[in-house]
Design a protein around this nucleic acid. Structure first.
Length: 303
RNA sequence: GGGCGGAUAGCUCAGUUGGUAGAGCAGCGGAUUGAAAAUCCGCGUGUCGCUGGUUCAAGUCCAGUUCUGCCCA
């Protein structure tokens, strides 16, 4: 079982393909945006050719207007992993959504899923009274969680209160997985890293290529459906900016520039996540390295 | 050639009656348990175009100079 992580545009996908080739395994995508059907160019999904060549899981599983989140991901991926293990299939899990990676490493707590009505009520309360007021309430019911969550952090305050209202138990009583150091599966874990300049160059090149391949048209087509995009899908880098362009907020050039900036910021956040993971082998990759070469290195290391 | 304005952080710009400078964005670092490509926290990175002058003290006032924008020839 291989777990491959890396920043956006670091070369994970080609590497996953090579590993699948050598091992005769199947690929599990770890990506919160590749799950949406027809969001292909902007999420850098594997090409049609690659998808005929190898078996990919966790891609194209919901409609762009659907809700998707970590809970659903875990619900779907765990039985899948069990099945592949039983079949004796090598697994290559690869992607860049760090929280999902962490979920694959250590699991998530067995708690209540998102409750849209409750969440909306809490959001309205935050809009009315400010997040500090709800943070104060959290301090009363769950001081441990409140100490860890900043009083401006709306999303985490909302989730913590949501869990308490649905279960009567504080969220901090559930959260034991992250940082436990106990791996759910016997992963061989690798993180691809590149020099920052090289990484930025690759990001700029990728964004340019996405635009040339028709990112704007892809978004236009998605928006043409009255069901549109869900909140989560509409936040994807590359989509959010183009949507703003079509709303008349940014020129096309401005939108493209913002995509580059936001992609670099995404990569930065990913780096911060990956640095915090224990037990992951770092693989320095430079511009001359090929996917085949990196795959061979990994196979040699895990013989 | 003449007139007026501008020149301060990587970018766009503030800067009071003179007291060695600060916002936004970018950047850097961090947190992260069912929205996570989300959300949030921390950090100012400077030859104030250049040269002189006035002054205890100049980004600020004065002279010159360079570049730049607009207007008039």
């Amino acid at each position: 079982m291989y777990l491959i992580m890396g920043c956006t545009a670091s070369g994970k996908s080609s590497l996953a393909g090579e590993l699948a080739e050598h091992l005769g395994g199947e690929i599990i995508s770890i990506d919160s945006m590749k799950v949406y059907r027809r969001m292909d160019i902007g999420t850098a999904k594997p090409s049609l050719q690659k998808r005929q060549q190898y078996t990919y899981h966790m891609i194209d599983i919901v409609e762009p207007w659907d809700y998707f989140g970590m809970g659903l991901y875990m619900e779907l991926v765990e039985p899948l992993i069990e099945r592949l293990r039983q079949e004796g299939k090598p697994i290559i899990a690869a992607g860049g959504t760090a929280m999902y990676i962490r979920g694959l490493m250590e699991g998530i707590f067995d708690g209540p899923p998102t409750n849209p009505e409750l969440r909306q009520r809490l959001e309205e309360e935050i809009a009315r009274n400010g997040s500090a007021a709800l943070h104060q309430r959290l301090t009363e019911i769950d001081p441990a969680a409140a100490a860890k969550i900043h009083s401006n952090d709306k999303k985490r305050i909302t989730r913590a209160l949501e869990v308490f209202e649905l279960t009567g138990k504080p969220i901090s009583a559930f959260q034991e997985q992250f940082g436990s150091g106990k791996l759910k599966y016997p992963w061989q874990m690798f993180c691809l890293t590149r020099e920052k300049e090289s990484a930025s160059r690759r990001i700029n090149a990728r964004v340019k290529k996405m635009v040339e391949e028709g990112l704007f048209d892809e978004v236009k087509t998605l928006l043409a459906d009255p069901r549109g995009l869900s909140k989560q899908a509409a936040q994807a880098v590359g989509y959010a900016e183009v949507i703003k362009h079509f709303q008349g907020i940014w020129s096309a050039a401005e939108a493209v520039e913002k995509i580059k900036i936001n992609t670099r910021q995404l990569a930065k956040h990913q780096r911060t996540w990956f640095r915090s993971f224990a037990g992951v082998n770092t693989l320095e990759v430079n511009d001359d390295d090929t996917a085949v070469g990196v795959a061979e290195k990994i196979l040699a290391l895990t013989k």
